[in-house]
Simulated scan of single mutants.
Amino acid sequence: MELGGGTRQDFDALLLLSFGGPEGPEQVRPFLENVTRGRNIPPERLDGVAEHYLHFGGVSPINGINRALIEQIEAELADRGMTLPVYFGNRNWEPYVEDTVARMRDDGVRRAAVFTTSAWGGYSGCTQYQEDIARARTAAGDGAPELVKLRQYFDHPLLIEMFAESISEAAATLPDDLRAEARLVFTAHSIPLRAASLCGPDLYGRQVAYASALVAAAAGFPTYDQVWQSRSGPPQVPWLEPDVGDHLSALQEAGTKAVVVCPIGFVADHIEVVWDLDNEVRDQAEEAGIAFARASTPNARRQFARLAVDLVDELRLGLDPLRVTDPAPVPGYGCTVDGALCTPQCVSQRRPGEASAGRPPG
């Protein structure tokens, strides 16, 4: 199917598909065990991560943000004269996508567009959501609706606009005498180097770099840094670097007095944003005497709802994809540029026999 001037698709529903998160202290450990099932993560490692959630009362912000975003999407659909019902499903916690797709089947949904809370290509950002879709349809059995995953949107003008606005808002909170010299630092979730090119040569890294350049230009920052965060696993396994904490130490040594950190790789202020950045990195900055400001993610902004409905309209009306084209993107950046819904060579990074995250047995 072509995105520009191609076959139009009718949809009778929209599914927001996300990662999921606990909504009470008693759910934290089962949630983490579900996320890491089949990966042989030591129990003490899960205990450490559980403390991050328990610091916030055992409640991840992500489900609440997604429910608020759904309200905005419903309002945007109504403004455009569209009557699509919007469903909500998660990979790792309630509402599980399997249950949601079964409910869609029972409601008579035949074809639904799927908007995922990831803007990126690569396994974790794209392919794993395709696996979620396939698993949910299999679980639903006969009569399962067709589910069409919407494209990656890392270069959509509204995503660039939202992050640029957030950077300006964050910079305005810095002391007046430091604002002009603040260093802009983009951060995204790191991944193992062995996974970096599974879906095209350094696809995810190049997408993050391209989006960072677009946002920096829109926010009026001629110079910036792009780093990584939230790595996990044994230290002998190499991941994308530099780490945001290591980079902050380097900025301290260089005499930097203020930073604006933009979590470009995340579309919601979930635990890996509010803990890793708002606690660990902020504390590190304060100890180093560096003024710190953190830009918000899109969360439930109305522009994010507009972006989601734009993606639906691209397929519903056969429109060319809305994307930033100045500077012109380099070929090979995934489905937006290449004209396919997913990069054909993208393969699972799971080892044979390793479980896929999803609903736990039973």
Rank of each mutant, 00 (worst) to 15 (best):
V109N: 01
P238L: 11
R350V: 01
L248D: 04
A164C: 06
W239M: 10
V281T: 03
G289Y: 09
P61E: 14
Y224R: 08
A295F: 09
R137G: 05
L315Y: 04
R135C: 00
L319D: 06
A140I: 03
A182M: 06
I191H: 01
T256Y: 06
G289F: 08
K257T: 02
A328F: 02
P25M: 14
M162K: 09
E76P: 01
D79H: 07
E161F: 07
P222V: 07
G38A: 10
D99V: 01
G255E: 06
P145I: 11
E280L: 11
P43T: 04
V273I: 15
A188V: 01
P344Q: 05
V261I: 12
T7N: 03
V324A: 12
T325S: 15
S166V: 03
G339W: 06
P43D: 04
C126E: 06
S118K: 05
R316Q: 07
G48Y: 02
G200N: 07
E169I: 07
G57L: 10
P263Q: 12
V260S: 06
L46A: 03
E287H: 15
V324M: 09
E272T: 08
D313W: 05
L307M: 13
V244G: 02
P95H: 13
L150R: 10
G358K: 07
D79F: 03
P327K: 10
D246A: 15
D107M: 09
E165W: 12
R323I: 03
A113R: 06
A13W: 02
R80D: 01
E286H: 13
R231K: 15
R103A: 13
E2M: 13
G121C: 08
V267Q: 09
R80L: 04
I62R: 08
C342M: 09
I271R: 13
G5P: 01
A112C: 03
A355M: 02
P263K: 13
V101C: 14
L69I: 06
Q303E: 13
N299F: 04
A75V: 01
V267G: 07
V281P: 00
L32T: 11
H247R: 13
E94P: 00
D276H: 14
A250P: 01
N90G: 00
E76C: 14
F186S: 12
L150D: 08
A355V: 03
I62G: 05
R91M: 03
A250T: 15
E181K: 09
Q229N: 07
I271Y: 10
A295Q: 08
G205Q: 08
S212G: 11
L178Q: 15
G58N: 13
V337S: 12
E287A: 15
R306I: 05
E146T: 15
I160P: 00
A119C: 04
A217G: 10
C335P: 07
D176Q: 15
G245S: 12
